[in-house]
Amino acid sequence: MPENNNNDVVLRVKDLHVSFYTNQRCNNVLRGVSFDIRRGRTLCIVGESGCGKSVTANSILRLLPDLSRIESGSITYYKEDGTEVRLDQLEKNGKEMRSLRGKDIAIIFQDPMTALNPVYTVGHQIREIIKEHKPGLTKQQLKQESIQDLAEMGIPAAEIRDGEYPHQFSGGMRQRAMIAMGMSCEPKILLADEPTTALDVTISAQIFDLMNGLKRDHGTAIMMITHNMGVVAEMADEVAVMYMGNIVEYGKVEDVFANPTHPYTKALLRSIPVLGKGRNQQLEPIRGVTPDPFNRPKGCQFCPRCDYAGERCETEMPSEEWVKEGHYTRCFHFREVMKDGK
């Protein structure tokens, strides 16, 4: 992992291990995840369903359910005044953690249909977070702020919308309201967990524009989770490819797209259709199936589905190999993979 502790880094996750304990069985969901989130940049985490993307985002805000545990590793938040906060060591719903939630780090969830409380007006739900972090505002001031937040996210007739209930909003409007809520206290970091999966393409594009605007105008650091390589190409500055609880490749988006060094990344890239190539282009699905999390391969998690797998891959998980400045991979055979090109 990069050791340059330049002040762009606002959040550093290092060798994070998280397990879930369900039905007396232990599921090692995260198995040593490391990445940085930087000011004014977007990190995209991409990977197939169940690989641990949401768990990663929820660990940062300590929103994991009771049946899970952070086993080891660290999550460090670098405050603007230079102090460092070890989020993994804070009490889960304790005062310190709560003071950071919403104020310094905000999160947007996948499904805007269920993430808003149906019995309160959208305005009320935005004011709730402002009230929590900026006590002492009058009712009028609060109302003004919530209306302004909605208007900034491009919601027309914000004064009226402010007093409406979530069921009166369309999906895209709700997601805007969620972002308005997330941005209301001007957080340093915005975690977006598949913010557009539930929305159609044009609405998604608008939401992405909004997020890019935040990055540009407020210097917000964004971590965006997706399982869509197309979204990565559009949004990311850095990309982290995740497979079964490991980040198997991490780097600047242009480096990773130009020189994929992990067979899984390569497979993902091959599976996106390219515009203009016509309808006869060969889309190759990834061979084999995702392993059962309770019955994982011993060595490299991708080994059973990998064309490059050798003997060593079956017994040992590769550690992070340096490819070039800021580009890392977890593959013993990355040189071969690189040489073969895309």
Binding site: L63, N93, S99, G102, K103, A106, D111, L116, E132, H133
Partner: peptide
């Protein structure tokens, strides 16, 4: 168990 409870926690509201 609903998402809005998680949203409420993510806002920093006390338990």
């Amino acid at each position: 168990n609903r998402d809005y409870v998680k949203t409420a926690r993510a806002k920093g509201l006390p338990e």
